[in-house]
């Protein structure tokens, strides 16, 4: 369960959010520039809110009252971006296992084989990111995030950079992920239709206002 209540300013743009997000896929929709990416950046810890608090499963991540701030690498929040952001100097296998280097003994997540099967990426393991198609890269990026054993997965426009065919190819994997892991996911997109089948809850972001959407 992700709990947040915060306000943040950037220039003359203000984002205010009051949210409780549970299991399943929560779609966060809204036009470009509405503050969706800023919201994710605040949750991931790449940005500090001007005011407010965020907690995940009862553990406080940031609280401006008590001046508490958990840095991104200790939040256990997986991220998948529009561009896959795979490490170009590592092959797919090493990209996938990267998060494990830092997971610690009591946080070993799913087995590599499980994730590789889930995402059908076994044939790609020894390739370099630049030799992958856009859709393959995104699947590896999702696998990499899952193998870091996150308690929450953020997906920021994960299929926007793909053509319609690749897009249609990737969505079933996300559905599989939703049904087989129970990992809470925040899925940001500016296209509602994209997540229509996937989403179990909706959040709307418009002009910096974040509201639960029915």
């Amino acid at each position: 369960m992700l709990d947040l209540s915060l306000a943040h300013r950037l220039g003359d743009f203000t984002l205010t959010a009051e949210l409780r997000i549970g299991a399943g896929v929560t779609a966060i929709t809204g036009p470009s520039g509405a503050g969706k990416t800023m919201l994710l950046s605040l949750i991931a810890g790449l940005t500090r809110p001007a005011r407010g608090q965020i907690s995940l499963n009862g553990i406080s991540l940031v609280n401006t009252e008590t001046k508490q701030f958990v840095p991104p690498h200790r939040r256990h929040i997986g991220q998948v971006f529009q561009e896959a952001r795979l490490f170009p100097h590592l092959n797919v296998r090493h990209n996938l296992l990267y998060g494990r280097l830092f997971a610690g003994r009591n946080r070993i997540g799913p087995a590599l084989e499980t994730i590789v099967d889930l995402l059908d990426i076994a044939p790609l393991l020894h390739r370099r990111p630049r030799d992958l198609s856009g859709g393959e890269r995104q699947r590896v990026a999702i696998g990499r995030a899952l193998l870091s054993n996150p308690t929450l997965l953020l997906l920021d426009e994960p299929v926007s950079a793909l053509d319609p065919v690749r897009k249609a190819e990737l969505l079933p994997y996300l559905r599989r992920l939703r049904d087989s892991t129970g990992l809470p996911m925040l899925y940001v997109t500016h296209q509602r239709e994209e997540v229509a089948e996937l989403a179990t809850a909706w959040v709307r972001v418009e002009n910096g206002m974040v509201t639960a959407d029915q």
Binding site: H73, H76, I77, G78, E83, R85, Y98, L101, F102, S148
Partner: peptide, 16 residues
């Protein structure tokens, strides 16, 4: 952005 991605995967700044 690659450095941010590494941090998101649990890498502390020295490891990034």
């Amino acid at each position: 952005k690659l450095e941010d991605a590494a941090a998101g995967l649990g890498a502390p700044p020295w490891a990034v």
